[in-house]
Simulated scan of single mutants.
Amino acid sequence: MGRTVAVIGGGYGGAAVAKALDQDTDVVLIESKDAFVHSAGSLRALVRPDWAGNMFFPYDRLLQRGKVVRERAASVDPGGVTLASGERVDADYLVLASGSDYPFPAKMDTDLSSEALESLRAAHAELASADRVLITGAGPVGLELSGEIKAVWPDKSVTIVDPAGRLVPGFLPEMREDLHRQLDALKVELRLGTTLTEEPPTEPGRAKTFTIGTTGGEVTADIWFRCHGVSVNGHYLGDGLVTTRTPQGRVRVTETLKVDGHDHIYALGDITDLAEAKMAGHAMRHAEVVAENIIAQVRGERPTAVYRPSPVPSILLPLGPSGGVGQVPSPDGPAVLPAQAVSEYKGADLFIGRFTELFGRTPTGARTEAPTEAPNGASTDDGPDHRTDSRTP
């Protein structure tokens, strides 16, 4: 076989696998956005628009040998990719890395970084004018958003509504207890086991006072944000030329991350049906396995790298830059991290340095480190609810 690799999607996993393959293959990265979006920084960007430029990294220095094609994939077949323009990218290997979508502001709803920045600044202005905030969804995204809001505006009222009966199921009780303790200290009101009786009368992120019914009584808010509803990006697989997706829209893969039934087509990140939370850290580890296997095949060797989801679920969930909870695997089983460790690992700068290195540059923003202090003196920071293309350990 030849050595051309088409990678569909330039998110966490796609960018990482393209970079890892760049020296040994001929990489074509197909991505419609004009810059990589570090979505783990989006909630910080909402509350600190002066920081928002830190989450965008142009692709022009990602690859030295390969190329980036700014297009959408319309269809994929075993021989390559048909683009939305009708043009064709023939390839010897394919990597499906198209990730997922999630409601704004957790993920951007535009391909242009300039438009994304405008949307973040507009939403910030709306949020700044609101005294009472309603968040629908108590998954990691909704919880993290509450912490970011409270870090900048500790006096705002924040209410989170979710039909689930408890937070972060599947994690250790000690971590859950610490999470509740920190949310109580922030005066975040949790209404678990509660459902809205109707959709709020305004668009998410728009300031307008309303009162709405829930199964646990009324809620009055000046603005609301939707923090649930992930959707897998796999429209280009709809014709079934490569694979049939699961009812959730995902792709079945082997332990070498090959798409079932193909020896030269791989998938990674949110689109895979792997039994693990959809998180950026996992996608980037998938990328290591896929790159190792494709390079082996290009060299005429047998691909032997395998990926097995950890039996211990892990998470780093900041609540602002200095708070948060975490759980990671350890030799003695799952270990709970205190807020200080979560801040040091992730909350303080949201892994900006890692992506500065990956993309060979500083971000498009004015600084690469999060400010150490927010106005009013406050210090500054996939599950199905967790965008991975989302939060990483």
Results as ranks from 00 to 15, higher is better:
G9Y: 11
Y12H: 15
A15F: 09
A20D: 11
D22K: 11
V37P: 00
V37H: 15
R44Q: 03
R48G: 00
G53D: 02
F57Q: 04
Y59V: 02
D60G: 02
R65I: 00
A73F: 10
S75Q: 14
P78C: 01
A84T: 08
D92H: 15
L94M: 07
A97M: 06
A97T: 07
S98L: 09
S100Q: 12
A106P: 00
L112P: 00
L112Q: 15
S114K: 15
S114R: 15
E115G: 06
L117D: 03
S119M: 15
S119P: 00
S119H: 15
A122F: 12
A123L: 03
E126L: 09
D131E: 15
T136F: 10
V141M: 09
V141L: 06
G142I: 01
L143W: 10
E144L: 02
G147A: 08
K156M: 04
K156T: 01
V161F: 06
A164Q: 14
L167V: 09
P169N: 05
G170D: 06
F171E: 02
L183I: 05
T194S: 10
T195G: 00
L196P: 05
L196H: 05
L196R: 04
E199A: 12
G205H: 04
G213Q: 11
T215M: 03
G217I: 01
V219D: 02
W224A: 04
N233T: 11
Y236T: 00
D239I: 00
D239T: 13
G240Q: 05
T246L: 04
T246W: 06
E255I: 00
E255G: 08
D263T: 12
L268K: 07
T272E: 11
H282W: 07
M284V: 14
M284R: 13
M284S: 11
A287V: 01
E288K: 14
A291P: 06
E292A: 15
I294Q: 06
A296E: 10
R299G: 15
R302M: 00
A305R: 14
Y307K: 08
P311C: 09
S314K: 07
L316K: 08
L316R: 05
L317M: 13
G320D: 01
V336N: 09
A341G: 04
A341L: 15
S343L: 02
T356V: 09
G360P: 02
P363L: 03
G365R: 10
A370R: 04
T372H: 12
T380D: 07
P384L: 13
R387T: 07
